Computed example of a mutant assay.
Amino acid sequence: LQQAAYDQLVGPGYEGSAVAIQPSTGKILAMASNPGYNPNDLMGDSAEDVWANLQEQEGQPLVNHAGAETLPPGSIFKIITTAAGLNNGFNPSSTLTGSNVITLPDTVTELTNYANQKCNGQDAVTLQTAFALSCNTAFVEMSEQLGADELRKYAKAFGVGENYDLGVSTSAGTLGDLPDGAATAQSAIGQRDVTMTALQAAVMAGTVANKGTRMQPYLVNRITDSQMKDIRTTKPKKADQAVNEETAATLTDLMYASERSSAGYDGNGFASKTGTAEHGEGLAPHVWYVAFDPERDIAVGVVVKNGGNLGESATGGKVSGPIGRAILRAYQGEQ
């Protein structure tokens, strides 16, 4: 599975990372990033030169990008916003705006849907349609009713801002400050100061898959002595109850609808959410895909930086979705 994840990134020459976890335990099944390096090159007479070149190389190959690089998540964060909404009076049939543009609270700043389009071509849509088609204006409207405190509560419950102790370098990500309604609205769609790692994205998807229970991720399954007798075995540990089982089931249904609406959908039974995150004027977006296979106890988080090979026209569905689906299909489960 590790090889499959690595090949999916390196084959097309993408910069990015992919993580697969087992939702029921938190066990990390694969953690790959590109660019990387071959540790065998750090042997022999040329080791010092290789090390120096790696430190100067673009893309920071020495960094564990999957766990340590935080990036704006874009619309995959709407899983968290929706979780807050479902526990504050919203349901999949709730009506939200489908307008192509909305003014941020207490400002004259306008925020638009992707490609400045109406959501499903309509002035009003259900939450299910807004989630499946990732309509920004609907979630801005939802955020006005939720408020900053609820967004903070659910972001924390899903692990945003938590730095996991894995024995390798990791970063916490952040929701950022939410001083007013405009900041809350921008953050509700995974923009402004919101950041996550691919590991945190996989954990988020795995939390939904695990009926709302977030498990502590871990890399080391067991430590043995020289005779292969166990010295210590990692026991799965609950990190938080992000949402109850009913809310997780509703989120799962919404993620099924999102997968069916995603570019590249091929009739699979996965539950997913895509994200296309802006991170600077004139720069190609970072594109995300989170998903899980309810039949095989695996969840994935994938991010490809700077649009991959599609530049500014890239979306999570077009670029990261195929990677995530390939990883899900490569997993054979426990034998």
Rank of each mutant, 00 (worst) to 15 (best):
G59E: 04
P322L: 13
S99A: 15
L42I: 07
F270S: 02
Y218S: 11
V63W: 11
G321V: 08
Y154A: 12
A172N: 01
L328V: 09
D230G: 00
Q122W: 04
K318V: 15
G275P: 01
M255V: 03
D240G: 00
S33Q: 10
A314Y: 00
Q128M: 12
V19Q: 07
A205M: 10
L310C: 00
G98E: 05
G275N: 06
N210E: 09
L199A: 07
I102P: 01
L29Q: 10
Q191H: 14
D106R: 06
V220I: 15
V319R: 00
G181M: 11
S171K: 09
D225F: 04
L166R: 10
G98V: 07
A172Q: 04
H65A: 14
E245C: 00
A66Q: 09
T109Y: 11
G275I: 01
G176K: 10
Y154L: 13
R329V: 09
E110N: 14
I223W: 02
G333V: 03
H286K: 03
A291V: 07
N53V: 02
A132I: 02
L283H: 06
G311F: 05
Y331A: 05
G206D: 05
T276Q: 02
A205F: 06
R232S: 13
P39Y: 03
S262F: 00
Q191S: 06
V125N: 01
N116I: 12
E245W: 00
E110Y: 03
N40I: 05
I298T: 06
T25Y: 01
V19E: 11
R232Q: 14
N91M: 08
P179E: 12
E110V: 11
S261N: 14
N116R: 13
A284E: 03
A47L: 01
G267E: 11
F158V: 11
W288N: 05
L219K: 12
S46M: 08
